[in-house]
Write a protein that binds this DNA or RNA. Structure first.
Lengths: 230, 230
DNA sequence: AGGCACACGTGAAGC
DNA sequence: TGCTTCACGTGTGCC
């Protein structure tokens, strides 16, 4: 493993010394390698300096990379004493994991665009009761939640999970619906269409009574949608 | 940069050859380095084989690490032609970014534990109006949202964002509050305490009228909390 | 020409 | 002991 500053600076330097000594001995025995006239004057110290700066630069490069690897070790728990390769494997796993989880979460959580929209997609399909993930995004209004509730209750589906996020007068409602007594998965497509149509109707009812069609209504507080007494 | 398979396989081998030739020349001139009796018999080919397998193993190690780096390059867009160090810098940035976004999203989204709890933390503190992120987690009840709404409206804070997630009769309400006309950041601590106390009172009012103290009330639908007409 | 980045082989430690 | 991992210096190609 060799932690800290090893005296390994000797060995590589040892190979270098070996090569240099070899060069010197060849010269001493008169065995010029090739292109004698190329080295005009003072070529030896210049080459030595270049070699030294080269090794120092390479050293700095290694330190940079290792510092980054150390940062990665500190970032991912449980990799303190791991191999470089194992660390990178873990890093790759983390990137993939976080990427998928982030996208699959944020696509359902973040407040959507300014345009009204209705999304319905099959959540789990194979094996057991399937579930639908439906979301509707529109401008906030006091009776939206009640309308949405009544609409969903009219469907033969059970609301497993509901999530509401609102910001700036826009609201996104996302629900997860499941069918308790479903024996055939082939029905899920018709359920998907039904849910989509139902939410579309909510959207149309939302667009129906706009006092000022061109302007968006001003919402004083996100709790507009929560008010239990109109 | 040197992409692909360089013929650099020669040079390192060249240095090795130089060292080996040097070794051989020393032996030919009878200049034993040290410890002559140590090499008993057949030590030369054995050492050569060990050295060869060693270099091959090191080569495989490098290939493994580089393969992982290549995978990371494919994982993060825009790093195809980057340095190793720059690539790792980008990887670190990605990990941090994804980690924070995932945690800050999931900690507000996921359904909390079974225990009731109130959390209040300062969101943005330095520069401009600060904001508080407050959340309350408890069992669902019809008047919870109305209570929460009235409680928050009684505070001199504005509700910027509200998010509700409920599952299995448990509900988590998370709100982001800000103070519009705050000139001093030192007040945020008292606001934090006020919000915490207010939410605690909501929690206590929730625990007050339990028909069956030991058992949790059964909730038929998450839209219980949304019902606009009691 | 000089700096930079890379792959290579090798000595030293840890199991 | 052998196998693995690491840091090092070096050769080499590309700006």
């Amino acid at each position: 493993m060799m932690r800290g500053i090893p005296e390994g600076a000797v060995h590589g330097g040892l190979a270098a010394q070996a090569a240099l000594v070899f060069e010197r001995e060849r010269k001493e025995r008169g065995t010029r390698p090739e292109r004698v006239g190329k080295n005009r004057l003072g070529a030896e110290p210049r080459a030595a300096m270049a070699l030294k700066s080269h090794s120092e630069a390479e050293r700095r490069r290694r330190e940079r990379i290792n510092a980054h690897l150390s940062t990665l070790r500190s970032l991912i728990p449980g990799t303190c004493k791991m191999d470089k390769a194992a660390l990178l494997t873990e890093v790759i796993g983390r990137i993939k994991e976080l990427r998928t989880s982030t996208t699959e979460i944020s696509q359902g959580v973040n407040v959507p665009a300014d345009a009204d929209e209705v999304k319905v997609e099959v959540n789990g399909h194979g094996g057991g009761p399937f579930s639908l993930r439906a979301s509707i995004c529109c401008a906030d209004r006091p009776d939206l939640l009640a309308d949405l509730r009544q609409t969903l209750l009219s469907l033969p589906l059970r609301t497993v999970k509901a999530e509401i996020s609102t910001v700036g007068g826009r609201v996104k409602n996302e629900v997860v619906l499941t069918c308790d007594g479903c024996e055939d998965d082939s029905e899920c497509s018709v359920f998907t269409n039904n849910v989509h149509q139902a939410l579309k109707s909510v959207l149309e009812r939302a667009a129906a009574p706009p006092e000022f069609p061109g302007k968006r209504r001003r919402i004083s507080s996100p709790f507009h949608a929560m008010s239990s007494s109109p």
